[in-house]
């Protein structure tokens, strides 16, 4: 079954293509936006800007440390740089630079980490960003955005430009179906969106796992379990209010992320729940493992990231309420 099909979601084009469109759009609107590429513009789709605004596009080659600091220098000159590459290359080659030149300096730079998660598929685990959110978590001044569909990607890119300060934006190679109407969705940094109402359990997802959570909610509804689904598009600052309300009103929480469970979204939500309104929780994500090359759907199934896995976790959490 296609992702989002159970929930009745319309298919969409790959998120990286949506990012390319959104980036071009903000470049059109704001002449201060510049784009830096680590020679992957054809993969991240930042190349849309290379064609439209060549003077505002810089390919720094395969040298991420230099890439990040050149971006920081441009930000110091009043530009709004989008520093773009695969998340794994940026974070693993240039963490020191992200830390000093951007995070500690509180510079107004935007970093696009593409190919987050395992759904890039066939290129395999060397390219997959399964630890990106944990690593950005270690850069405390960064706002962290994980869009879940085309409309939210457009809004996230604009929100990143509007926010003054460091922003990390996760993008993916995979297509994510439309959660929201095609041109619009609510998107306030730090304010999660409740995309399905329910009172028995809350599934909090980010990125591709929001559509999957809606599929899971459709499965659970057939069993008489009404799941609330939350799109946690901002991982920092995290929307404590929506999390606490979910704990109080539904009494059980499942988190779902295309990321290592260690250091990911779920662990941060658990900290909030544990210190405010403890309720049974279950966590869907990657165990402490690397994955492998393969078709994205096969990988999601093998490594436990499907609607069925989320539904099973929800049943457990609901059972634990009693």
């Amino acid at each position: 079954m296609r992702l989002g099909e159970r929930a009745g979601l319309k298919p969409a084009k790959p998120m990286r293509d949506v990012f390319g469109d959104a980036l071009l759009e903000v470049c059109r609107r704001n002449p201060r936006v510049v784009v830096l590429d680590g020679d992957l513009g054809n993969s991240t789709k930042a190349e849309t800007v290379r064609h439209a605004f060549p003077e505002r596009f810089f390919n720094l080659g395969i040298a991420e440390s230099n890439l990040v600091c050149v971006g920081a220098g441009l930000a110091a000159c009043g530009f709004i740089p989008f520093i773009t590459s695969f998340s794994s290359f940026l974070l693993c080659n240039a963490y020191d630079q992200l830390r000093l030149a951007i995070a500690l300096s509180n510079i107004n730079a935007k970093v696009l980490g593409s190919h987050g998660g395992i759904t890039l598929g066939k290129d395999g685990p060397t390219q997959m960003g399964i630890e990106d959110l944990a690593l950005v978590g270690g850069l405390p001044t960064f706002v962290m955005l994980v869009p879940s569909d085309p409309a939210s990607m457009h809004k996230a890119v604009q929100a990143a430009v509007d926010h003054v300060g460091p922003v990390w934006l996760r993008s993916s190679r995979v297509a994510m179906p439309h959660i929201y109407p095609e041109d619009d969705c609510p998107f306030t940094i730090g304010k999660a969106n409740v995309v399905r109402q329910g009172s028995d359990v809350t599934i909090i997802g980010c990125g591709i796992m929001v559509a999957m959570a809606l599929d899971a909610a459709a499965i659970l509804a057939e069993e008489g379990i009404q799941a609330r689904v939350v799109d946690m598009h901002t991982l920092r600052p995290m929307d404590k209010e929506t999390i606490v309300a979910a704990a109080r009103e539904t009494g059980a929480i499942v988190t779902a992320e295309e990321h290592l469970l260690t250091g990911g979204m779920g662990s941060n939500i658990a900290r909030i729940v544990a210190s405010t309104h403890p309720v049974p929780m279950r966590f869907v994500g990657l165990a402490d493992t690397y994955t492998e090359s393969g078709d994205p759907e096969d990988l999601l199934r093998k490594y436990g990231l499907t609607a069925e896995h989320i539904a099973a976790a929800a049943r457990e959490a609901v059972a634990a309420k009693r």
Binding site: E55, R56, N66, C69, V70, A72, G73, L74, C77
Partner: peptide, 13 residues
């Protein structure tokens, strides 16, 4: 690298 960023920013400005 930071210095090069200032150079490129200066050109654009």
């Amino acid at each position: 690298s930071l210095g090069l960023g200032h150079v490129l920013g200066g050109r654009l400005n």
